[in-house]
Design a protein around this nucleic acid. Sequence first.
DNA 1: TTTCTGTTTGGAATTGTTCTAAACTATTGA
DNA 2: TCAATAGTTTAGAACAATTCCAAACAGAAA
Lengths: 149, 149
Amino acid sequence: MDKNSDLQRQRPFAGTLARLKSAGLRPTRQRLALGKLLFDAGDRHVTAEQLHGEADAQGIKVSLATVYNTLNQFSTSGLLREVVVAPGRSYFDTNVDDHHHFFYEDDATLQDIPGDQIALAALPDAPADAEVARVDVIVRLRRTDENRS
Amino acid sequence: MDKNSDLQRQRPFAGTLARLKSAGLRPTRQRLALGKLLFDAGDRHVTAEQLHGEADAQGIKVSLATVYNTLNQFSTSGLLREVVVAPGRSYFDTNVDDHHHFFYEDDATLQDIPGDQIALAALPDAPADAEVARVDVIVRLRRTDENRS
DNA sequence: TTTCTGTTTGGAATTGTTCTAAACTATTGA
DNA sequence: TCAATAGTTTAGAACAATTCCAAACAGAAA
Ligand SMILES: [Mn+2]
Ligand SMILES: [Mn+2]
Ligand SMILES: [Zn+2]
Ligand SMILES: [Zn+2]
């Protein structure tokens, strides 16, 4: 019997509720549902379309516009972080800790590289007129022949 | 008197011509003109719209579709490399050597970091089913208050 | 030259995302 | 408990970047 999942069964939106409160966002039906999809399943990297599809599959009625609104609000609140890896589509990452990414080009999929498993030696000085906002490392992967179906 | 620029004055498309040949692309009027804009001015990072604008400014008649075609063909031929830094637009880089980038978020501008000025310590093993195609490091910069106009 | 095939082009189409303005709903505080 | 208020959702239009299309065009080869 897992205490954590037991808690979730009783108060299924507790986690998201706390997050919304800390971000100063009203706990609406839509945000609670999307937050649950996003945060109750461990680390995730999703696109707006994907999340909208998942909500739909679970019978949750949310417009695509709201999915975009929510993902953007969550991102600017620090609940999510946006990762840019491919032209023309945005990924949203539920892991907001310092970390980097593997990107499987074949299926356009992201995977975390723990922050301590990669280190930058000799990061050059930022130009004098600017400061470093973030450093993104993307390791682009191609499936090897032997594993291609 | 600079020998290199002297040569360019006599055979203004020589460089691009050689590149096109090596890529197996016909030296059309459009490709020669775009190649000249791209390669005769040192390292550059341009978007399709930008390049199209430059061509236009010089009186070169090229359709935007051709600019896209050309940039994509140059990229798959290895004459250019595509850099993804911001959602919704692609940058094309005339520097195809191993190197990384500063990205000024304020004006959406790229700047090279020489390959030897940044090093990855402890790059994690690629998953067994894949091989590393490329590693991109993007150092995102924000202009400091003192320098903001 | 003629033929052949690769290239260019304008315009339509597609895709991902944002905008708009009207309908709705959570919150507040009488 | 109920307005009044301000934040939220939504359908659909609008947008921006990019690709697609099919017809005209232009290098290359014969
Ligand atoms: Mn955004
Ligand atoms: Mn491309
Ligand atoms: Zn991640
Ligand atoms: Zn570069």
